[in-house]
């Protein structure tokens, strides 16, 4: 197991290196400059500022300088946020993003599993049909539309939750719901298909022949086997949540990294873009690693050799 983990962590570092390299050069291809008031500056002033931030060197040199910084744990300082180090900017804003992202993921997947399983057990009844309709709705409605609807109905009309801002659990409810919808729908659809398949398999027949009742069959045999393929979509769902959070955080004015990412791209804040890209990639890699470990725990056929 330790050997496997070591190998996987090495691959994660390699992945992050490749991702940051590609992002660095793509970022330099973006139009515009980090300067917001370029029109008012003289060429000498611009050159001065570029020199100060090392932007006057050829791109490959800038890249090497940046890499050197990362190896020493230095992610640079932000252009926009008055010389704050990027590592501080991110770490101070990571919390809210992790909270709503994590909550959205857990709620979405768990609720999706329940909806999917119920749909499969009651296949081709009105229960199944309503579960399918919910799934289709939640897949079709983009999270930002759902966010606005939630703000309007649950926030403004019913005054159940604050419509925006940050400060405690109540503030997390609406963004979590907005983020959970899509993973819920995806998980439910997948779970239903898998479980219908599993319920018609031979080993379920054998379980019936043993005299297990319906609850026993589902609990002891069907659930675990249906979960195996569902675990594979958790990676893509995490990506879904991360991209969704960028928009959702903006709508709810949550001081998270999603909101910051959007801002930094709009202002060509190079060090912040790079920092956040690496953080997002790292989060995804960790989710994928966890997924693979969970996969092995559920399915003995692919268990990692100790």
């Amino acid at each position: 197991m330790a050997k496997y983990l070591g190998k996987r962590i090495f691959y994660i570092i390699l992945t992050l290196f490749i991702v940051s390299t590609i992002t660095f050069f793509l970022m330099k291809l973006m139009p515009g400059t980090p300067l917001t008031n370029q029109a008012k500056l003289t060429p000498t002033q611009i050159h001065q500022i570029y020199k100060q931030y090392g932007l006057d060197k050829p791109v490959w040199q800038q890249y090497l300088v940046y890499l050197g910084g990362i190896i020493h744990g230095n992610f640079g300082t932000s252009f926009q946020f008055s010389n704050q180090p990027v590592s501080y900017l991110i770490s101070s804003r990571l919390g809210p993003s992790l909270i709503i992202g994590g909550q959205g993921m857990v709620l979405g997947v768990l609720a999706g599993l329940v909806v999917g399983a119920v749909g499969a057990i009651k296949a081709n009844t009105w229960v199944d049909t309503s579960a399918t309709i919910i799934s289709i709705l939640f897949i079709s409605i983009p999270s930002f539309v759902l966010a606005v609807l939630l703000q309007y109905y649950l926030g403004l009309k019913l005054r159940l939750f604050p419509i925006a801002d940050w400060g405690g659990f109540m503030y997390t409810v609406l963004p979590t719901l907005a983020l959970a919808a899509s993973p819920l729908a995806e998980t439910a659809r997948f779970m239903r298909t898998e479980m219908v398949d599993v319920l018609s398999s031979d080993y379920i027949e054998l379980a019936k022949a043993k005299g297990l009742n319906k609850v026993g069959i589902i609990y002891h045999h069907a659930l675990r086997n249906s979960l195996i393929p569902v675990v594979t979509i958790i990676g893509p769902l995490a990506v879904n949540i991360m991209t969704g959070s960028m928009v959702v955080e903006n709508i709810f004015s949550i001081p998270g990294i999603g909101e910051q990412f959007v801002k930094s791209i709009l202002t060509n804040d190079y060090p912040t873009i790079m920092g956040l890209t690496i953080v997002y990639s790292a989060m995804l890699c960790v989710v994928l690693l966890i997924t693979d470990i969970v996969y092995g725990l559920i399915d003995p056929r692919i268990r990692i050799n100790k």
């Binding site: 398999s201 031979d202 080993y203 027949e205 054998l206 379980a207 022949a209 043993k210 005299g211 297990l212 045999h221 675990r224 086997n225 195996i228 559920i298 399915d299 003995p300 056929r301």
Partner: peptide, 18 residues
């Protein structure tokens, strides 16, 4: 499973893999 039991055609699929 107590008084009447059954065995099936395909042993490769009739056992719970997990």
């Amino acid at each position: 499973g107590r008084d009447i039991a059954e065995i099936f055609q395909d042993p490769m699929t009739s056992l719970d893999p997990t």
